[in-house]
């Protein structure tokens, strides 16, 4: 009986990870690769953004090439997370997500850390505002039926690196996760 209870407790505390198939595709117009998966009613995708495209976007919003270089070369993705049909609202903190690369695991560099860096080197306020709101939300709640966001996410790896990314969220305290495998940073 104790074994059954122990097994039940362990099962209940482990993150829920329903089997689902990852799809990788390449946009025929832009050439950008996308990795996507739907797990437990939640859609999750990463689409490559080239360093040069990031530089052009941020230079047009007040950064210099030199200022934005640490970010543009940090393997950035257009990220979508969407609650299509989870049983309830999902809540996540992206700083709790894990990047697995070359046998190492690291957390994502937070948006606040980037902003502090920009403030310390005197980037103008309007450029920082654009940077902040172009990022994937550091924390968010999505109701089922289609709440979602699309934003930039820095993985913190050099160009051409390969990695797995585990996204985590909870529903009323119960942990869930979704893993994208073999994602490639743009060259």
């Amino acid at each position: 009986m104790k074994e059954i209870i122990a097994t039940l407790i362990i099962t209940m505390t482990l993150p829920c990870f329903a089997e689902s198939k990852q799809i990788n595709r390449i946009n025929s117009i832009t050439g950008a690769s996308t990795w996507e998966i739907s797990t437990n009613g939640v859609y999750f995708s990463l689409t490559q953004i080239l360093p040069e495209q990031l530089q052009a976007f941020y230079v047009n919003r007040g950064f210099t090439l030199k200022q934005i270089e640490p970010y543009s070369s940090s393997c950035v993705y257009m990220t979508v997370l969407r609650n299509d049909s989870a049983p309830d609202a999902i809540h996540f903190v992206s700083n709790e997500w894990s990047v697995l690369s070359a046998g190492n695991t690291h957390r994502l560099k937070s948006v606040d850390e980037w902003i502090r860096r920009w403030e310390n080197i005197g980037i103008k306020k309007s450029a920082i505002v654009a940077f902040r709101w172009a990022q994937f939300p550091p924390e968010q709640v999505y109701q089922p039926g289609g709440d979602w966001n699309q934003g930039m996410l820095s993985i913190g790896l050099p160009p051409n690196s390969q990695f797995d990314l585990i996204a985590r969220w909870d529903i009323k305290g119960k942990a869930y996760e979704s893993k994208l495998v073999g994602v490639q940073c743009a060259k």
Binding site: R25, N27, S28, I29, T30, A32, T34, Y43, T47, I49, L50, E52, Q53, L54, Q55, A56, F57, V59, N60, M78, V80, R82, A134, Q143, G145, G146, W148, Q150, M152
Partner: peptide, 24 residues
């Protein structure tokens, strides 16, 4: 580069990859 970046970031030429808009 700016046009390419705008396309990627705004999704203008990325229509086939854009998630559908819902109405809930």
């Amino acid at each position: 580069l700016y046009i390419a970046a705008t396309s990627i970031v705004t999704g203008v030429s990325n229509a086939e990859q854009l998630p559908p808009l819902t109405h809930k």
